[in-house]
Design a protein around this nucleic acid. Structure first.
Lengths: 219, 219
DNA sequence: TAGATTGTTAATCGATTAACAATC
DNA sequence: TAGATTGTTAATCGATTAACAATC
């Protein structure tokens, strides 16, 4: 059980969550059947790409009919590993750490938060959604004892690599990193980055470019 | 002035912030000169790709020498529009909105925050870094009066499209969207999304896939 | 000058799109 | 059965990598 999709390209994988989201929206609207053509109109990928993408994981559709929305939603959820529960900790209990702890999607899709960690004495001992904020020095023993699988780094840049080292030493399998740097980890640990500033800079680039274009046109 | 880079592919553009970040690190370490080969080793792109990317915007290097780190850093900053000041507002003054308001990179690279907006009476009237939290009903007039260019959406999914409509009606040129949906805006407005759950789901996928692979190997 | 390294063209690789036979 | 739409192969497009002449 659990097929091996190692041959699927990351380009395809990065589109999966979007399919999952749109299928959920359709279900909420009580749409139970959809063709690649209709889905294409909603989601903005070509119908051809949608069929190619889905076929990487199996034949979920039916000729002449299309796709069963509920089935496809559930299958993609399984492929994404959302049927499992992952044990997590958040390091850095400031605004960002708290935002994630309270993020509805985070709670809803099987990510169980066991604790938050911070170095600020004012935060240590507090609770977020009934979950304790512990002293950051306790990370390693806590992760080992509770068999934490995912560490979420919401600390400043300066301490992020040190935290990553502690997390991987203690046995986490994956890191969700919000600090603006590329952390180094052993080969068997998976890192997924959210680089907020990169996203912001791209917005800045596009705005700046558009202005330049309009200025050029005005002449 | 301000050259036209419309022919540059988004694949290249999305790498620019990473160059910018690594060049900053080099400058901080007082490295003033670097070849594409050395940069390749640090950043993980091929040397060939680095030279191709940079040449989309001009010949910043010098044969036999490499690139001047400071010059290249400044040039990429300009290309990204970081030499300008953008006027911004944040809608949704919860943890996420506050996290962004306090994000060092945000403040440092020319994004000036004029106000936060929320519907929660407990938050309205408070201040974050000396910046007021206003009633969300005041958005449109505030954006018009202060000529706000960027709106940052940190609200729940349910109200995000409505907020986006108000922002674009009032004249913002770009939206940085953190709500987990694809908002619809007029053609001339630029949207950059940060879909946290998509990032998290990809981490989940990769962990799940790795487990399946290891389980298969054990047999 | 000799060595190093860019800028740039050409070759390769991978991802997207088009087309259509299979089939519900 | 006829119509619709998938699954899948083949064609196209774009992005990455390799190679090397230009030149500092």
């Amino acid at each position: 059980m659990g097929r091996d999709f190692t041959d699927v390209s990351m380009a395809v994988v990065r589109r999966l969550p979007k399919y999952h989201r749109y299928l959920k929206d359709l279900l909420d609207k009580e749409v139970y059947r959809i063709s690649s053509r209709e889905l294409s109109r909603l989601i903005g990928f070509t119908a051809s790409q949608i069929r190619q993408d889905l076929n990487c994981f199996g034949g979920f559709g039916q000729q002449g009919y299309g796709y069963n929305v509920e089935e496809l939603y559930n299958e993609i959820g399984k492929i994404l590993g959302l049927n499992k529960i992952y044990s997590t900790v958040i390091i850095g209990a400031g605004n960002l750490g708290q935002a994630i702890a309270n993020y509805p999607h985070f709670v809803k899709y099987g990510f169980k938060l066991y604790g938050l960690f911070d170095s600020n004495p004012k935060l240590i001992g507090m609770k977020i959604r009934d979950i304790n904020i512990y002293d950051v020095d306790a990370i390693e023993s806590f992760v080992e004892k509770n068999q934490i699988e995912i560490g979420i780094i919401c600390t400043p840049k300066e301490v992020a690599q040190d935290i990553a080292d502690k997390l991987t030493n203690a046995g986490v399998k994956g890191i969700w990193n919000f600090a603006p740097l590329d952390i180094k980890v052993p080969d068997d640990v998976i890192v997924e980055n959210v680089h907020l500033s990169e996203s912001l800079f791209i917005l800045s680039y596009l705005l700046h470019e558009k202005e330049a274009l309009e200025a050029a046109k005005r002449k």
